[in-house]
């Protein structure tokens, strides 16, 4: 049984469904995502692409047992990487044991806002990272090199709280990837990144790793700026001569407490839930959603390396 969420915040402004939707198949399940803390978050960012906030329990937590079962399925399918997102993953009290178990199977990345974990959690993360032969990536979302840039998006005091989170991780020897959503014109990117690196170095992060993400005009972001316009959709013609391997749905799926959905961006979208088991969910997906346009334009931005780094395009 596939459960369809009742509301769709992902696709405001969509036109009528096409008779010939652009279908994207999946060749290999390379990345398996887990919506590990459901839609619950301690923050209520104004640009969140899935409307997570402190009162949103539309999707529930995944427990260690749930994750273990999925890892066994994933192992049979030869999955290459595991990602954990929410909501805020570290609201899930089993987050460290979940990561520890995952690191027995392969590399793991966890996407956090950096504001909730304590020194002891960072110490545990450093320990499990050291004990595993696979890499643990901790990705911390901070949307600016100072509070005046970040806090209007993520909430008062969140820049300082997240920077302290980075300091704690770094003090335990970890090298977090700081992700920043691009809210500036392209020509300012080098200046923004230089300033952010300088700031992180001043806070003790000598070798800062920064990943820039484009904004997705869905969820909360659609009301902050604007949603996608009806004509901003991928068409079958646009896939001609295009390497569909750039699209996340051609190599990823996400486990939620309601089953398996196509990608972490679309868990709230009708039609994005593809089944209860992983194999069942490995079927073609019609990329008719507004967010698919961003993935089409920028490549699989959600993974650590993006589309090219993940080895697409050849």
């Amino acid at each position: 049984m596939t459960v369809i969420p009742e509301t769709d915040t992902t696709d405001a402004g969509a036109g009528p469904p096409r008779a010939d939707p652009p279908l994207v198949g999946i060749e290999d399940l390379d990345e398996l995502w887990f919506q590990v803390s459901g839609t619950l978050c301690n923050l209520a960012c104004s640009h969140c692409f899935i409307s997570c906030h402190p009162g949103n329990r539309a999707f529930g937590f995944l427990g260690l047992g749930d994750v273990k079962r999925r890892l066994e399925e994933a192992r049979r399918l030869g999955v290459k990487e595991y990602y954990f997102t929410g909501g805020e993953p570290f609201l899930n009290r089993e987050m460290v044991p979940i990561l520890e178990e995952t690191l027995r199977h392969g590399p793991a990345s966890v996407l956090t806002n950096g504001t909730v974990f304590r020194d002891a959690t960072a110490a545990d993360l450093a320990r499990i990272a050291k004990e595993s032969r696979y890499s643990l990536e901790v990705r911390v979302s901070i949307d600016g090199y100072d509070a005046s840039m970040n806090d209007p998006l993520r909430g008062d005091g969140t820049w300082e709280a997240a920077m302290r989170g980075v300091e704690v991780l770094v003090s335990h020897g970890l090298l977090p990837i700081v992700t920043i959503v691009q809210t500036w014109p392209d020509e300012e990117t080098l200046r923004v990144l230089d300033r952010f690196r300088d700031t992180l170095r001043l806070r003790g992060y000598a070798r800062p790793r920064i990943k820039v993400l484009p904004t997705l005009r869905i969820g909360m972001e659609a009301s902050r700026t604007r949603g996608y316009l009806p004509h901003e959709r991928v068409t079958p013609e646009m896939l001609e001569g295009y390497d569909a391997g750039q699209l996340l749905c051609s190599h990823s799926r996400i486990v939620t407490d309601r089953g398996v959905a196509v990608c972490p961006i679309l868990i709230e979208a009708p039609g994005a839930h593809l089944g209860l088991g992983l194999e069942e969910a490995l079927r073609p997906f019609a990329i008719t959603h507004a967010a698919c346009t961003t993935c089409y334009q920028h490549g699989a931005i959600c993974t650590n390396l993006g589309a090219g780094g993940a080895g697409r395009d050849r």
Partner: peptide, 14 residues
């Protein structure tokens, strides 16, 4: 793919 990275710490046995 000829441009796929296979790093030791990011390539599972399976």
């Amino acid at each position: 793919r000829m441009n796929e990275f296979l790093w030791e710490s990011a390539t599972p046995d399976a």
